[in-house]
Nucleic acid binder design. Structure first.
Lengths: 341, 341
DNA sequence: CTGTTAGCGCTTTCAA
DNA sequence: TTGAAAGCGCTAACAG
């Protein structure tokens, strides 16, 4: 090694493109090309430039690059809260596919922003991302209008928005509710308790579920609501209340697996057998659902597929090959029947 | 409402500071001040400017602002994977505190980046964040050296790094391992199985734990390793193997609560009583640990406190009131004894 | 309290 | 295949 390595003590001024250019004895634009479009530069020049980059410890300034090129190569994903495991696969696939296309994925936790949805969207737009992915619904019309006015590519996921901002990749929560009801009816249960989280999407599943149960002559004997974010503890508490109330029931449907897990634990702590004494069903097919004792019946959503399709459509929107607000894709869902029902 | 609202159709060119300035009949810098330092502008002028901002639908371009001011008001947090719930509270508190100080927190999932740690760090530095928080250890010396050379404020969390990049907020994994061993010894167990994830930090807990067990004359009869990321299913599988091997044991210590949860489920599926037949202990005090049946004994780390202290120290580093590499803060941990041991 | 001047670091466009 | 000139949108520094 004859090269001088990059200095390990912070420099007063980090190296710029010009510094690299001077050292390599080329013009700044040539350095830029080596980094962004190396196919336009001769091997020999590339070598000189890469050497200079290494020696100076140069790291491109994408603020400057994005400012002039109007492309940030940044996609921001809004998640309600990273504790929500529903979106793990979606984000994984999305990020991987975008990385292949040289886009960087950064996550913004929406519940961090005290200024509300509108402020959150402003903060995101201020970074000039090339695309935005929403895993939650924007309630505020103001926030939605801002996105529309900007014209930035947006994909709404995990539901089928009725008035989409732009592109949509999701599934019908109403259809899920009906499918859950159908399964419980099929299993011959007649008196059902509900343990439900109190958010927009869960509510849509619940309304459809209750309607379908009633249509089949099944009685909904109780409904416990839990504020989001819910956890397993909420499930146990809800089941405690249900058992204390003494209303006889042969099944409990939950808005989400976490609650179902808590409901099962509490039932067992009371000596009840699942599913013989009481069947339990969840939604989400979270990782643990396959491994509880007994294993939990639930509804599976292919989050990875949502992520992949979102990436594809977002890239098409960014490149302009897909129009805005044109595509609404339903990825569906499936019932996962295990031991708890 | 006499105002013209921002247009709902994407404009050819989004409004700039100059557009706002012209409409409000002030200079651009005044608009900038209204946004960033309103205390320097008279009420009357502010009103004019805010009106113009609303009418034009102006959203500041932080790329441009950061470029000239050398402050991006952006902090990037590196998480191994958002499925890892250990960091939820840390990120929540960190983000909230930073938001108060007008910094935006964005998350970067490190396992998304195929180019390795060095490429990940380059991608992050290219956005010129004012600070970086690491929730995982950087293995590559190259990546660490890049951060050092840049001089950007960095806080390493969730462990006490031996050769810190800059500031540290964490706890000793060795001390945790010894505490777990101590608890099992105290409970009178003599033959212990281990179910462990195969990562750097977990390994440090295990080595210390095993050493302490042996020192107390407790026999380690088996050790099952699981590749990260682990889940509850890995715990069940490991316990299946342990039971199949037929080696008698009276306790199982796990590297993480998820594995412990799986171990308990499998033990129960085999008709074993926890803790009478076999005690089970985890680490992390994940949300479900308080709600399993029986409730799980574990080790609690105050992730929220780590987040808060990280925010404070990072802000001090950014403002220059704290020197680089000066502070190493140990937030400790605590044993949480419940029903499973 | 408000404005003028200059330039952050990079890429676009056009030219050689 | 390489370079020169111009300017993206904003704020620091200074002046009034």
């Amino acid at each position: 090694m004859l090269e001088t390595p990059a200095p390990l003590v912070p420099r007063a001024t980090p190296a710029t493109l010009d510094d690299v250019a001077k050292m390599a004895k080329v013009s700044p634009i040539t350095v830029s090309r080596v980094i962004n479009r190396p196919e336009l530069v001769s091997e020999k020049t590339q070598k000189k430039v890469r050497n200079a980059i290494r020696k100076t410890g140069y790291v491109p300034n994408m603020l400057a690059g994005a400012l002039v090129s109007q492309r940030s190569r940044l996609v921001i994903v809004v998640v309600p809260n990273i504790a929500n495991r529903a979106f793990v696969d979606t984000i994984g696939q999305l990020g991987q596919r975008l990385a292949q296309a040289r886009y960087q994925l950064l996550l913004s936790q929406s519940d961090l922003d005290a200024s509300g949805e509108s402020g959150l969207i402003d903060a995101i737009l201020a970074r000039r991302p090339d695309g935005i992915v929403l895993t939650r619904r924007l309630q505020s019309a103001e926030a939605r209008d801002k996105l529309i006015a900007r014209g930035v590519p947006v994909v709404e996921t995990w539901e089928l928005a009725e008035q989409p901002i732009d592109t949509v990749v999701g599934f019908s929560h109403e259809a899920v509710g009906r499918a859950m009801a159908g399964h419980i009816v099929e299993r011959g249960h007649r008196r059902v308790g509900l343990v439900w989280s109190d958010d927009d999407r869960a509510t849509r599943r619940r309304l459809a579920c209750v309607e379908a149960l009633r249509a089949a002559g099944v009685e909904v004997v109780a409904c416990e609501f839990e504020r989001v974010p819910v956890d397993m503890g909420n499930g146990r508490e809800a089941m405690t209340r249900l058992l204390k109330a003494g209303v006889p029931m042969d099944a409990v449907i939950c808005s989400i697996d976490l609650l179902a897990q808590g409901v099962m634990a509490e039932a067992q702590a009371h000596g009840l057998r699942v599913p013989e004494d009481v069947a339990v069903m969840g939604f989400g097919n979270l990782e643990f659902a396959a491994h509880t004792h007994p294993r939990l019946s639930t509804v599976n959503v292919d989050g990875g597929r949502i992520g992949l399709r979102t990436a594809e459509l977002l890239l098409q929107r960014i490149e302009g090959s897909l129009g805005r607000g044109v595509q609404v894709e339903d990825v569906g869902f499936s019932l996962v029947v295990r031991e708890s029902t």
